[in-house]
Simulated assay, not measured.
Amino acid sequence: MTHILAIDTSSAWCSVALSLNDAAPIVRHQKVSAGASQLLLPWIQELLSEASIELADLDGIAIGVGPGAFTGVRLGVAAVQGLATAARLPVHPVASLDAIASQLVQTSAFIASGAQSFVIAVDARMEEVYWASYRVGITRLPARQGDIHLTAPEGVELTQIDFVAGSAIAEFGDRLFASTPRILAGTHLDSTIGVNALGVLTCAQDMWSKGMQEDVHLLEPLYIRNKVALTSIERSLQHG
């Protein structure tokens, strides 16, 4: 089995996971806000030491490339660029919503729901939502239907969707379901699930099995939004 190190710092959590042959992955996952830069490299060294392997023994490094917090995404990508270059390792860039989707389909609530189509919707700040639609297929991972979108909460397309998950549910509530209030009456919601290195690892293992490794020199963040902050005028209008 492959040894893949997975990293995600695209949210308020610092998250690192390492696959270990047939054993369960070892994980560090902690809410740190702005402290990920102090924990990331020590955690990586801890996991490698616990597995009794060196960085060069890895088959690749997976990284959550966003969309997400601008500074966090840059931190994770920069760290992987340095590590993979030094050890001459391929990389596996994973979109944060794809990582969340891979985790969601393994939860007992999702399995019990029998859902076949679902949406991951994540708070993108600035009164917007990152979202994407997925379908459960015959393979281990769900298939994303098209691109990751950035819209107002009311712009999330939920027609013929069986399940909705992500932080946008708690952040925007009724606004998210304005066009499809029937979903609110059901139980097929998960507002707490977020991106985790385990989800990144799951996606990366699938990519590795398909020969989808990437040269580290091609690695870059996934930016859905070009603008990362509101101007003072825009903020005043928003709250006025």
Rank of each mutant, 00 (worst) to 15 (best):
A6T: 06
I7Y: 05
I7T: 01
I7H: 03
I7C: 03
T9I: 09
S11K: 09
A12H: 12
A12E: 15
V16D: 04
S19D: 13
D22K: 14
V27E: 11
S33F: 12
G35Y: 12
S37Y: 11
S37C: 13
I44L: 11
L48F: 05
S49M: 11
E54G: 13
A56T: 14
A56K: 15
G60R: 05
A62R: 02
A62M: 09
A62K: 05
G68T: 05
A69M: 13
T71S: 12
G72R: 06
V73E: 04
V73C: 07
V80K: 01
V80D: 03
Q81Y: 06
A86D: 07
A86K: 13
P93I: 06
V94K: 01
A95G: 09
S96P: 03
L97P: 01
I100N: 04
A101L: 08
S102V: 05
Q103E: 12
V105E: 05
V105D: 04
Q106I: 06
A115L: 02
V119N: 00
I120Q: 04
A121R: 00
R125F: 08
E128T: 12
A132Q: 02
R135P: 04
I138P: 11
I138H: 12
L141K: 07
G146I: 14
D147T: 15
L150T: 09
T151Q: 07
T151S: 14
G155I: 00
V156H: 01
E157A: 13
Q160R: 15
Q160Y: 10
D162W: 01
V164I: 15
D174N: 15
D174F: 01
I183E: 01
G186I: 05
H188C: 12
D190E: 08
A197W: 03
G199R: 03
T202E: 08
C203S: 11
A204K: 06
Q205G: 10
D215Y: 08
L218T: 13
E220M: 10
L222Q: 08
R225I: 10
L230I: 00
L230D: 03
T231H: 10
R235S: 03
S236Y: 07
G240S: 15
